[in-house]
Each structure stands twice: as structure tokens, then as C-alpha cells.
């Protein structure tokens, strides 16, 4: 039995939607947070955590029924799951497969953790972060965040 068959057994197949594979182990719930998925809409969600993987020792996998990701969502996903693959599934078949690309800038999705930053005031400004090799940097105050980026997601 291949690795793929193995985890397919653990996490059920979906008919239509998105499979986010090769998520770094431990990040699956953050992926759901980015997508704003908490189950309250009744969508069918399957999560595999610490699944054996050829590429990493362990990985997480997220399957979401009836949901295809926007480019903005993929951009932010890339910050916490840079190795993820996005599989678009229609009628049980993978019809598109993408690797995520790290964008140069992410706008409007993260909030700056620096309480002294102008973007934390009640100003009509959209947050903007430059993406570094190992983190993100606020375009306004210059604060660099390397750990805990998922906690900055503006939901």
C-alpha cells in the first residue's frame, strides 16, 4: 500500500472541493483559521494530522468540500504552509494541482502585532506586509514577525 492510499483511508475522499496537502505538521488548524472555516457553515471538513509522508516525516492534510481557494487565501497559506500543494477536486477527480508561491507582499490579511504601529489605530489603511525569506515585515512600522504568523491573521 502506498503512502497516498494509506492516508486516503484515514481521511475520506471528497466529491467537489479542495485538498490542501503537504501542510507542515501541526499547521492544519491554522490553515482552517486562514480560510475562516470553523464548521459553523455546515461544510464538510476532514483534517489529517501527523500523517506519514514521503516528503516530510509527518504532514497535515486538509480537505474541504465545496470550496475552492482564492488567490489571496493561497498567498497567506503560503506563509504558514510553504510546501503545500492545492488540489482542486471535481467529481472525485483532481482537476488542478498547484504548489503555493510565496508572494512578495500580502495585503489586508495580517494585523501588525506592534501596538505602536499606525495600522493599529482607527485609520482607513489596509495592512501590508513584505514577505521575507523567514517571516513577514510590516510595511508601515517595519516590525518583523518570524514566529506565530498564523496568530496575526485578521479574521
Amino acid at each position: 500500500m502506498t503512502e497516498n492510499d494509506d492516508h486516503q483511508l484515514r481521511v475520506s475522499k471528497i466529491q467537489n472541493g479542495t485538498v490542501i496537502d503537504h501542510v507542515r505538521a501541526g499547521q492544519a488548524l491554522n490553515v482552517l483559521a486562514i480560510l475562516g472555516i470553523d464548521g459553523s457553515e455546515g461544510e464538510e471538513v476532514s483534517v489529517g494530522m501527523n500523517v506519514p509522508s514521503d516528503r516530510f516525516a509527518r504532514k497535515d492534510i486538509v480537505k474541504v468540500e465545496d470550496r475552492e481557494l482564492s488567490q489571496d487565501e493561497v498567498d497567506v497559506l503560503s506563509l504558514i504552509a510553504p510546501d503545500a500543494t492545492i488540489n482542486i477536486v471535481r467529481e472525485y477527480d483532481v482537476v488542478e494541482k498547484h504548489r503555493v508561491d510565496r508572494p512578495e507582499v500580502v495585503e489586508g490579511v495580517l494585523s501588525c502585532p506592534n501596538a505602536g504601529c499606525i495600522t493599529t489605530d482607527d485609520e482607513p489603511v489596509t495592512s501590508r506586509f513584505e514577505v521575507l525569506d523567514d517571516g513577514v515585515r510590516c510595511a508601515y512600522c517595519g516590525t518583523i514577525v518570524r514566529e506565530g504568523i498564523a496568530s496575526l491573521i485578521d479574521t
Binding site: 506592534n114 505602536g116 504601529c117 499606525i118 495600522t119 493599529t120 489605530d121 485609520e123 489603511v125 510590516c138 510595511a139 508601515y140 512600522c141 517595519g142
Partner: peptide, 27 residues
């Protein structure tokens, strides 16, 4: 001059005349 970091950057995005930062918080 403004107490918040990044204030001059943000303000400059709203104006067309030259804007000079005379101090933005600890920035």
C-alpha cells in the same frame, strides 16, 4: 510628527504634496 510608527508612510499615501517625516514614534 506623530507618536505612531509608520504614521508618515501612511499619511504620504493620502497626499500629493511632498511630506517630510519629522519623527514617527520609535520609527
Amino acid at each position: 510628527r506623530h507618536p505612531k510608527q509608520g504614521a508618515a508612510q501612511m499619511a504620504s499615501e493620502f497626499v500629493d504634496v511632498p511630506l517630510l517625516n519629522a519623527g514617527d514614534g520609535a520609527g
